[in-house]
Design a protein around this nucleic acid. Structure first.
Lengths: 236, 236
DNA sequence: TCTGCAATTTGCGCTGGAGCAAGGTTTGCT
DNA sequence: AGCAAACCTTGCTCCAGCGCAAATTGCAGA
């Protein structure tokens, strides 16, 4: 048994009991699921899986944040989604695929459980609520992608960046003194890949907003002080 | 029984037997499915269902083409997908949603069968291959949306329009004298909604390509004569 | 055949934001 | 402490493509 894959001698049931895909299951079922799982820690920037690779395993992110990115022929990166702890990822099987549709990169140090994809059908049929919840997850992500498309198609860069920031604080925001901070390190470059612009433009926008007191920002850290102002900007 | 909903006294089994979601089923099963279906004809431009409406029914497009569009607060339309005959649509339930995520507008006169959403679970559990095929459809559409996002994020207008045209002839092209024609009427406006640009720019591009002999185009009709040239343009 | 609307073309000016360049600041490593 | 790498800021220039305007063409219905 690979040391990197089995950091804990025995995974605790409380890891899963409160997570939606597993919340309807009893102790015994959770035990079975955990005994089949591999647990692994990932460094920041690690690739959990790569676009086009065969989808051997599916994952539950226990801790950390993951960016789902695609890389173009010319090497540009486009971020499709951010996934916070508590969600499934790499669930290619749920959408009838044999390969991963994108690359998953950790935005922070992260911990994930994973199972071989051959167990997928068992999970779906045996475990009450698992199918429903995963399809909800899919639906939610489809909705996000849709929104993304509409934004890219109709909004100005300023609006897109404002909206991206709002979405980030909604999904992964942490309440702090004087505002809400994005809970993981994020660079101007990351934000530009999320909003289809350049790091320069993002930098200019953030500088402007900081002058107006809407946000505060250090290197890799962004705190939103006046969400409402961003909402206004986001509308146009 | 509403005359508009039951145009045929009895639907023929051959309608469904060759379509992937139903191809593994026997005559008796198909019969049951058809007996529960409503069949309906839609004028061009008709809305089969609307974004945010409760997903009462799911559909199989038997004939025609459908555009899946979203409308922004400001009234702009963005086309997310084109769906050709033979595919399911309105399958909100497959992605755990209670409402339709977008509006479906017919691009030609069309015919679709539909079933009440309460039958969805029965279809998924009772009919062999139905679930697998529908999830493949979902996966395919997710892939397309992903591609769309990457294109919008990284490509120039010229490349996007070229790629959109190529995708249209792949999905819905009809081989004709001297080229491949898009099999349904499509305006410059439609193309601009598909590529997130303006009808003016699309018009300029198409005029240019026509001069160079890559395409021929009449009102609402586009024929691609030199697909390879468009592929080149699409790369950048 | 005529008439009116819808679709298309084309010209022109303007601007959002990309690209380029240079310099400043923070962090982590030795 | 000193250094290198990563990250951030800011100024300047330029142009793809949008917005506006006006003319033209094709189609459907009377």
């Amino acid at each position: 048994m690979d040391a990197a894959k089995k950091v804990l001698p025995r995974l605790d049931e409380s890891l899963l009991t409160h997570l939606p895909p597993f919340s309807k299951l009893d102790r015994r079922q959770i035990r079975t699921i955990l005994d089949q799982a591999s647990s692994r820690r990932y460094e920041v920037g690690a690739h959990i899986f790569e676009e086009e690779d065969p989808a051997d395993r599916f994952f539950m992110l226990l801790d950390g944040y993951v960016r789902v990115v695609r890389v173009t022929q010319t090497g540009e990166q486009v971020t499709a989604l951010h996934i916070p702890a508590g969600q499934l990822l790499g669930i290619a099987k749920a959408i009838g695929r044999e390969t991963y549709p994108a690359t998953a990169v950790t935005a922070t140090e992260s911990i994930a459980l994973s199972w071989p994809t051959r167990l997928w059908d068992t999970f779906v049929t045996e475990y009450d609520g698992f199918a429903t919840e995963t399809y909800k997850t899919v639906g939610h992500r489809v909705g996000e992608m849709n929104t993304r498309i509409v934004e890219l198609a109709t909004q100005q860069v300023e609006q897109r960046v404002a909206n991206a920031l709002l979405r980030l604080i909604n999904q992964t925001g942490r309440k702090v003194e004087d505002g809400i901070e994005i809970d993981f390190p994020i660079t101007r470059q990351d934000l530009s890949e999320l909003t289809a612009t350049t790091l320069h433009t993002v930098s200019r926008l953030l500088s402007g907003w900081e002058k107006q007191g809407f946000i505060e920002s250090k290197r890799k850290r962004i705190k939103v002080c006046d969400p409402h102002a961003l909402v206004e900007l986001g509308q146009g």
